[in-house]
């Protein structure tokens, strides 16, 4: 096949699209983090995220977060079409700043938990979950 100018342009556009698509999903993650932290630097330690290494069914993946003393914990699934999963805000009577739930994961990806501490600092933990069957349908 002869490489004409038209082919070259089509190919260039195609590869540009291939590069921007994952970048867009990544941008959504950044936006969610920004909205939660307000741009404050995120540290590590003081937060535990328990998720399975391998999840056979992405429709229901059990996760657990624990961040002693935290005010709120946000969960993000970085590879989902909508990365936000949920935000737990703990009240005065919470026995511990921990919670467990079940989430959907579209495919193999990192799950991230970010906790807001009462002094305004943030800590995060992440865990990669390998998903055999994705949980987003269609």
């Amino acid at each position: 096949m002869k490489l004409t100018r038209r082919h070259a342009i089509v190919m260039a556009l195609g590869s540009a699209a291939a590069f921007t698509m994952p970048f867009r999903a990544y941008a959504a993650v950044e936006e969610d983090i920004e909205a939660f932290t307000g741009g404050v630097e995120i540290g590590t330690g003081g937060i535990t995220l328990v998720a399975p290494e391998i999840a056979e069914n992405g429709n229901t993946v059990p996760i657990e977060v624990d961040a002693p003393g935290a005010e709120a914990i946000m969960i993000l699934a970085t590879g989902n079409p909508v990365p936000a999963v949920g935000t737990f805000t703990f009240g005065a009577l919470a026995g511990s700043q921990s919670a467990a739930t079940r989430i959907r994961l579209a495919g193999t990806q990192d799950v991230v938990a970010i906790a807001r501490m009462p002094d305004g600092s943030f800590v995060q933990a992440s865990q990669e979950v390998k998903v055999t069957i994705g949980g987003c349908g269609g």
């Binding site: 999963v85 949920g86 805000t89 703990f90 005065a92 919470a94 467990a100 959907r104």
Partner: peptide
């Protein structure tokens, strides 16, 4: 008095389950 308040997105599984301490 508040114990927990969860903002939920579509990534929470069918039949939402929560476990927490009070």
């Amino acid at each position: 008095e508040s114990v927990i308040d969860v903002a939920m997105e579509p990534a929470i599984s069918t039949n939402p389950y929560f476990e927490f301490e009070v």
